[in-house]
Design a protein around this nucleic acid. Structure first.
Lengths: 336, 336
DNA sequence: CTGAAAGCGCTTACAG
DNA sequence: CTGAAAGCGCTTACAG
C-alpha cells in the first residue's frame, strides 16, 4: 500500500517567502495590492514548492464553490457531446469548474449528489431533476438555469431551448407543400419531454395550415430512440396504416424508421419520405441523407452558462432564450 | 438583485435535535453507533431543516475530496458519450463525484484547474495531460489512471485501452484474405495518439503476414477526423496513387473517406473497400454499412474507474487492462 | 501595503 | 454511546 500523498500548504509558502499567510493569499487572489518584491518572493516560493491551494479550504473560507453543476438524465443521443462542449468551454472561460451528475431512476441515492452544498448554481437538462427539488432550490434562491424545459408554474427560472415548434412546422410543411405528402406519421418523444410536445404542436399546426385533419392513428411513440422507433414503425406497417411520410421526432429515431422501412421494402423517399430533428453528425451520411432540422445545441450550452453567470453575479437573466432552428434539406424528404 | 441564499448548518441541526454537533456528524456518516432515539431525533431535524452538509467543510475536515477528475483534450468523436457514461455510472455507484475538465491548447490557464487540490484521483484520456504534469502527480503519489495511453517510462500507472493492434490486424487481414485487396491505404490518427500507433502496427503486421511490402505512399493522415480524411483521400486520388482499399483509422475518418470516394465516382466496396474502427452508433447506418472494429469504450470507462478505486483504497491495481476488440463485418469491405 | 486573528462548517481523536 | 475541543487550509474584515 502506497503512502497517502502529502501537500504543501499556504503556511509553507508563507514561511518560505518570509511573509504572512494573508499576504500569500493576497497574491494568490490578486485583488488586493501587494508590494512588488514581496509578491515576487511569494510567487517564487509557490513555484518552488509546487503549491496549489486546496479548493475545499478556499470554498469554505470564501463561501463560494466556484463550480457549477450539470444535471442530466441520460447521456444518450448523438447531440450530447455538443451540449457538453458548449457548457464546458464557456464555463472554464469564466473560471468555473464543472461537476457532472446524471440522474438514473434505477440508482438508489444515499446522499444528495449535487446542489447547494457543492455548487454555486445548476444547469438542468430536460426533466432530469424532479419538480420538488427544483422548487426547493428556487425557494432558497439558488441559481438555476433549465435547458429544454420550462419551469414549474410561478417560478421565474431562465430556460434555454430551441425553436422546436417552428422547426417541426417547417419540416412538415415542406413534406406537404413540396412533396405532396398528406399522411404524415409523427413519432413522439419520451413522455413529459417538452421538446416532443412542441414538435407535436408544430406538426399539428402544419397540418392545420394545409387543411389536413389530424389523425390520431398516425401518431405513435418513438421515444427519440432507435429501437422504439423501429418497433413503432413495424407495428404501423403490420396494422396496414396508410402513410406516405414520417416525422421521426429526432434523428436517432429516424435511424430506426429507416431500418423498419427498408425491411418492409418501402423505398425512402419514393414510398415514404422521412425527416428527423437535430442534425446530428451522421445525418448527412446515412442513406438516403436525412432531411432534418439543425438545432444549435452547442450554443444552447453556452447560452445556458451565460445566463447562469448573470444569476451568479446578481444580474438579471433572460427568462427565455429561444435558439433559432434551421431546415436542412437533404434527400430523405424527396429532394435531390 | 436577489439575496444570496443562506443555508442551515450542522449546528442548527444539533440545536434542533438537542444533541452535540459531533453526534449529528456521526449519524450523518453512520460509521460510529448512536443511540436509536437520538439518531431518530437527528434524522428528523435534518429532514425538517432540509439540511445538506457542505462538501467543502467535509472535504477540509476529512482530507478526502470524494471526487475524481476526468481530463480529456477534446469532446470529439462519436464514442465520447459512451466513455462518459461508463465512467459516470461506475463512479456514482461508488459514491464519488465527477469533475470534468477539457484541456484546450488555445485556452490560457490561470490556475491549475484539476489535480490534487480538488480531486482524490484523476482519469486521463489519451494525451490530454502533459508528461510533466503526469510525472509531477506520480511523484507525489497521486492516484492516476490513464486511458488509451501508456505512461511515461519508469512510471507504474495503470492504463486501460483496447486491443488496437489486434483489431487493425483483423481488419486488414480480412481485406487481404477475403477480398484480395493488396493496396490498402492507412490513414493515421493525430500525432502522438497511441491508438493510431498500435493500429498502424496491426496494419503493418497484416501486410507482413501476407507478404505485401509496406508502401509509404499508401499512408496518409486522417487525424480521426472527417475533414482531414476527406482531404487526404482527395489528394491520394489527385496524385493517382493506386489503391483498392482504405483503413480509415477510425469511423469518423471513414465518413470523410466515403465522401471523397463518392465524389470521385469510386464505388464502395467494388472499386475501393473501406473499413473504420470504433463501431460508433451510425456505423451500421451509413451507406454502404461500415465494416469496422467494435471497441468496448463504455467498458473502458468503467474499468478505469475500477482501477482508480483500487488505488484510492490502497489496493494493488492492474498495470494494464486490454479490452478485447471484435470484427464487425458489414458491407463496406465487400461482404454482403 | 501587511499581519494577527477570527471564522468558514465540518470530522475526529480524546476523555469520559 | 457522547460531548468539548482541536484542527482541516484557506479568506477577510480589522487595526495599523
Amino acid at each position: 500500500m502506497k503512502s497517502k500523498p502529502t501537500y504543501t500548504t499556504i503556511s509553507d509558502v508563507a514561511e518560505h517567502a518570509g511573509v504572512s499567510i494573508a499576504t500569500v493569499s493576497r497574491v494568490l487572489n490578486g485583488k488586493i495590492p501587494v508590494h512588488a518584491d514581496k509578491a515576487e518572493r511569494v510567487r517564487q516560493a509557490i513555484a518552488e514548492l509546487n503549491f496549489v491551494p486546496r479548493s475545499a479550504a478556499r470554498v469554505l473560507a470564501s463561501r463560494k464553490t466556484n463550480t457549477i453543476g450539470l444535471v442530466f438524465s441520460e447521456i444518450r443521443g448523438a447531440f450530447f457531446p455538443h451540449l457538453l462542449k458548449g457548457i464546458e468551454a464557456q464555463l472554464h472561460e469564466a473560471g468555473y469548474e464543472l461537476l457532472v451528475y446524471s440522474t438514473h431512476s434505477d440508482r438508489p441515492i444515499k446522499r444528495k449528489p449535487i446542489g447547494e452544498h457543492n455548487t454555486d448554481g445548476l444547469l438542468v437538462f430536460t426533466t432530469s431533476l424532479e419538480k420538488e427539488e427544483i422548487a426547493r432550490l428556487y425557494k432558497i434562491n439558488f441559481p438555476l438555469v433549465l435547458m429544454h424545459e420550462t419551469p414549474p408554474d410561478g417560478m421565474d427560472i431562465p430556460v434555454i431551448t430551441v425553436e422546436n415548434k417552428d422547426g417541426a412546422e417547417m419540416l412538415v410543411s415542406h413534406l406537404i407543400k413540396k412533396h405532396g405528402r398528406r399522411r404524415v406519421v409523427f413519432l413522439r418523444g419520451p413522455k413529459g419531454h417538452e421538446d416532443s410536445v412542441w414538435r407535436e404542436r408544430g406538426y399539428r399546426e402544419a397540418l392545420a395550415t394545409h387543411n389536413i385533419p389530424f389523425d390520431e392513428t398516425l401518431v405513435s411513440s418513438g421515444e427519440f430512440d432507435q429501437e422504439t422507433a423501429y418497433h413503432s414503425m413495424q407495428k404501423l406497417i403490420q396494422d396496414s396504416v396508410d402513410f406516405d411520410a414520417v416525422f421521426a421526432g429526432d434523428d436517432d429515431a429516424a435511424i430506426g424508421v429507416y431500418r423498419a422501412l427498408k425491411e418492409a421494402k418501402r423505398l425512402i423517399p419514393n414510398d415514404v419520405a422521412v425527416v428527423g430533428f437535430d442534425d446530428v453528425d451522421f445525418a448527412g451520411y446515412i442513406s438516403p441523407p436525412l432531411t432534418t432540422i439543425r438545432a444549435p445545441i452547442e450554443e444552447v450550452g453556452r447560452e445556458a452558462v451565460r445566463q447562469l453567470l448573470c444569476l451568479l453575479e446578481g444580474e438579471q437573466a433572460q427568462s427565455l432564450v429561444l435558439k433559432r432552428t434551421e431546415l436542412v434539406i437533404r434527400e430523405s424528404c424527396g429532394c435531390t
